[in-house]
């Protein structure tokens, strides 16, 4: 019997290997992840995340799950906004990324209302109907079975809760040549110079291209049961924020 395959960047690999290979990428970039994020996006990722916070409608006392939360950028915003009555759970499959996030939030004095859980998005270890808000920023494209992950998120979301997906997406055509040059030439070079790790950054660029475009992702959300799904393109579609509700 042949193994089912999936993509890892532009490479086809057995499905069973993807989580491990993605894990290796984030193990290797964890320590320099924040620096690379700033350099690669010239700081703009902060605004993309800030916009996601605006769309989240987050309120005091809410239960928030920041999935694939990595080094805790979004969680830091939410922890301040939900206050001491609320709770933010940062879940990530990778222990190294979680550790960086945990240290960083502790340094900012954000401790009382934040928890860190090592978990796979495809099979979330939480009871049904638990969260008012789930966010997943730059994480979904790394997940092997995206449908399973969306179903899992739907299950743990409270009725009337919302899901926000911030992810690289399909750029407008006029931006494409420049964007391709940047992603496939400049980005791996920066990865080599800054993190001494061109391959991981090549994977990041390739995985962006293999991720479903805006419309496809919205359809996937609808198939998973989310309603009133929409998306907002940012920076010419370099990234998009998808939003859907469990009603």
């Amino acid at each position: 019997m042949t193994d089912k395959t999936t993509h890892f960047g532009f490479e086809q690999i057995p499905e069973t290997e993807k989580a491990q290979r993605v894990g290796a990428v984030f193990d290797s970039v964890a320590a320099r992840y924040d620096l690379m994020n700033d350099v690669m996006s010239l700081g703009v990722h902060r605004l993309w995340k800030r916009y996601t916070v605006e769309l989240s409608g987050v309120r005091r006392g809410w239960q928030v799950l920041d999935l694939a939360g990595g080094t805790g950028d979004l969680a830091a915003h939410f922890a301040k906004l939900v206050g001491s009555q609320g709770r933010v759970v940062v879940a990530d499959i990778n222990a190294a990324m979680l550790q960086v996030g945990q240290d960083r939030l502790a340094n900012q004095g954000l401790v009382g209302n934040v928890e860190f859980v090592q978990a796979d998005a495809e099979n979330l270890p939480f009871v049904d109907d638990q969260f008012d808000l789930i966010t997943i920023a730059f994480g979904l494209r790394n997940v092997t079975h995206k449908e399973a992950a969306l179903a899992s998120m739907f299950r743990v979301l409270k009725p009337s809760g919302r899901l926000l997906i911030l992810e690289f997406s399909k750029v407008t055509p006029w931006l494409k040549p420049l964007y391709d040059f940047y992603s496939f030439k400049a980005l791996p070079l920066m990865g080599r110079l800054i993190a001494n790790d061109a391959d991981s950054y090549r994977y990041l660029a390739e995985s962006i291209r293999m991720h479903p475009d805006q419309e496809t992702l919205r359809d996937m959300m609808v198939d998973a049961g989310f309603e009133h799904c929409d998306y907002h393109n940012l920076s010419g579609g370099i990234v998009a924020v998808h939003r859907g509700y469990k009603l």
């Binding site: 769309l55 409608g57 309120r59 906004l81």
Partner: peptide, 14 residues
Amino acid sequence: PYADGVYLLNQYEG
């Protein structure tokens, strides 16, 4: 407001 500053948001649904 939060302990160390304020957030200024364009949208708030609560």
